[in-house]
Design a protein around this nucleic acid. Structure first.
Lengths: 260, 260
DNA sequence: CAGTGGTCTAGACCACTCC
DNA sequence: GAGTGGTCTAGACCACTGC
């Protein structure tokens, strides 16, 4: 022990080139990258508990604080969830990215309580995806896609109309069950039936005009203005897994953004 | 020294009740709150450099790491900005919350380069604010407001129309200068002319119909659909300082949101 | 070069959760 | 009570900035 005392108790780059420390990445960044890869590779499934931070630190020969910083980074990225007294867990599917956060349907009902939307699958077909969708999903030419047509209702009244495109090669199990048994939330069903976890998504909002059949299904006048939300959802590895177009009454649309 | 050795080197709650540590706030949280108050109170103006973290730590009798966590918290809140090798600074006005991020005006020009919008103040009046605006700005009844009517152009073509409401008691200096000298960005002018720093804002988006005079100014047909962005901007203390309504062609509207 | 923030260590105690 | 994450300490070295 005394032989290495001159190195001091804090020889930080003991396991890497001493001088070439952070060219683009500090020690905790490398650890985060390493753990990130193992999570993305599926080594630990969603919901799985990682080893204790002290164990992880010892396993990787770093101090506790360094490992904590790596874990904090992954938690900030949404890959991990840390629960005091319980452990560190791989995050599962998106809790919810409810489309209704974009809309305020006043109705005649007393406001306040958030009513849960119900959904009805109107069609389920295998067909070639339109070019922009195929591009978004990174489908090869003529590679088949699963198309869902879905109506969402609030208090029994049709409110949102959805066109959902899924790469067939990952969602084939959806062809084997009755859509009416899927429930009102698709992402949990994707995970249960197909093992596909939706981890993040981007919504793009634009303005449009309802086509006649869309207006009819939503019980709105023809050429009524619509808010269109195009969502591209990805799994934990960043692969696009769903392309969804949601249309609703433009006059009911309302959305808030915070700027800092 | 040896006399207190039995306390160990890590008597952490030496300056607080030993057992009642985090009832709702840990040590670093209290430090953050303390510094936050001093920043909000204006003790350090925007752009001011704080003392070195080591100095701050010593001043408050905490370890470096504890003070670092407090400073990191404030940086995450957007109150501070830390620059490696330089120091820790109080953040100034919002760099920019460009309205044009909501719109894509394709034009006939080659895409790519972000063209800067110019602005033209069409009117500047002192008048009572409409009730919703007065409520948003927390103005007392009949307390006067400054109203600006502003047109924003891209490549010389009118694109956005803005109604801006300001509490007169903080923006009186705006009555003393020629609006054409204000430049194209208002927030820096607010800071320079009135000492009001816009620190954060929320945008609320909806769709509506242009009124005849609005359509005329934007060179669009009457009753053309419009995207309406209502922005409520606040200063560093969280006081609402500006209520702004921006209207533009709904068909040019496009906005992206990331969900994680 | 001195001063700043960024990284790392080794070890302690605390609060939460569950058995 | 055992195990987990959360907080704190005291001190070291590193990388960036500007004189």
């Amino acid at each position: 022990m005394d032989m290495i005392e001159h190195l001091g108790p804090t020889r930080q780059t003991a396991f890497g080139p001493p001088g070439a420390a952070p060219p683009g990445m500090a020690r905790w960044g490398s650890l985060a990258a390493l753990l990130r890869e193992r999570i993305i590779a599926g080594e630990w499934p969603p919901g799985h508990a990682l080893a204790a931070e002290s164990t992880l630190a010892a396993d990787h020969d770093v101090a506790l604080g360094t490992m904590r910083q790596a874990l904090a980074q992954l938690a900030a990225e949404g890959l991990l969830e840390r629960r005091h007294g319980k452990g560190t867990f791989v995050r599962g599917a998106l809790a919810g990215a409810p489309m209704l956060r974009f809309f305020r349907f006043g109705d005649g009902a007393v406001g306040g309580e958030p009513r849960l939307p119900t959904s009805r699958i109107l069609a389920r077909r295998v067909r070639a995806a339109p070019s922009p969708v195929a591009q978004a999903l990174r489908l090869a030419a003529r590679q088949p896609a699963l198309h869902l047509h879905r109506l969402r209702l609030l208090d029994g009244r049709p409110r949102l109309l959805e066109d959902i495109w899924l790469p067939l090669h990952r969602f084939a199990p959806l062809l084997d069950s009755e859509p009416s048994t899927w429930g009102d939330l698709l992402y949990p069903h994707y995970e249960a039936a197909c093992g596909v976890t939706v981890h993040r998504a981007t919504d793009e909002i634009r303005f449009g005009i309802l086509k006649p059949n869309e207006a009819r299904l939503l019980e709105l006048p023809v050429s009524h203005p619509a808010a269109v939300v195009q969502r591209l959802a990805s799994d934990i590895a960043g692969c696009a897994v769903e392309c969804r177009f949601t249309r609703g009454d433009a006059h009911a649309f309302r959305y808030s953004v915070a700027i800092t």
